[in-house]
């Protein structure tokens, strides 16, 4: 097991960040009416589900959650020797008139979000799209910005930011590793 260079968040800090993001969503959208969350596979999905739970806790209403697999929209497929496994995207609510908040764990170059935008727009036409990320590590390669950020962390290209969520990894934490 390799050692993290630095711990950025523990479970409590993650939870508080998500609570704050949930309040910001409510504030910006004046409630949760017409709002839906779409988690970007893989770790964006449990984060979206947690956010939906908090929104329900704070506002008392269910917020729909969808999932998005962006594999088929990646711009780097031809650079891979083996193609990645494709999973289903599921957006069961209607998109027109809905404010969709994309949820992901780490915002880095912005290419994943770009792919997610294309994937979502091929499914339908939401009223608007916002972006919530747990960590923004800088180094954008496309003009993409997040509306809600858990924590801003300056990093170098030689580092990797890993978010662990208990639903997938067994623990909740955010850490930086050397590449």
């Amino acid at each position: 097991m390799r050692e993290p260079k630095a711990m950025l968040m523990d479970a409590n800090q993650m939870n508080r960040a998500l609570s704050r993001i949930a309040h910001e969503i409510i504030e910006k959208n004046k409630g949760t009416e017409g709002v839906a969350l779409v988690g970007i596979r893989r770790r964006g999905i449990p984060l979206a589900e947690r956010l939906a739970a908090k929104l329900k806790e704070f506002e008392g209403k269910e917020v729909p959650v969808g999932t998005l697999d962006i594999t088929l929209y990646r711009d780097d497929l031809t650079e891979l020797s083996a193609v990645p496994q494709v999973h289903r995207s599921e957006v069961k609510f209607k998109l027109p008139g809905t404010v969709v908040i994309l949820v992901d764990d780490v915002l880095y170059t912005g290419r994943t979000v770009r792919a997610a935008l294309d994937a979502l727009l091929d499914i339908g036409r939401p009223a608007s799209i916002q972006l919530a990320v747990l960590i923004d590590r800088g180094h954008r390669e496309l003009p993409i910005r997040a509306d809600y950020v858990g924590k801003n962390v300056p990093t170098s290209h030689r580092e990797v930011v890993e978010v662990h969520v208990s639903e997938i990894d067994g623990d909740d934490s955010v850490a930086v590793y050397d590449l």
Binding site: L72, Y73, Q85, V86, H87, R88, S89, D118, L121, D122
Partner: peptide, 23 residues
């Protein structure tokens, strides 16, 4: 299994309004 799983994931494309993927 891999082929069938992938086909399952792609199946909806043919029934949604935008029948296009850039892949």
């Amino acid at each position: 299994d891999l082929i069938l799983d992938t086909a399952d994931a792609l199946k909806d494309i043919a029934t949604r309004p935008i029948k296009k993927l850039p892949t």
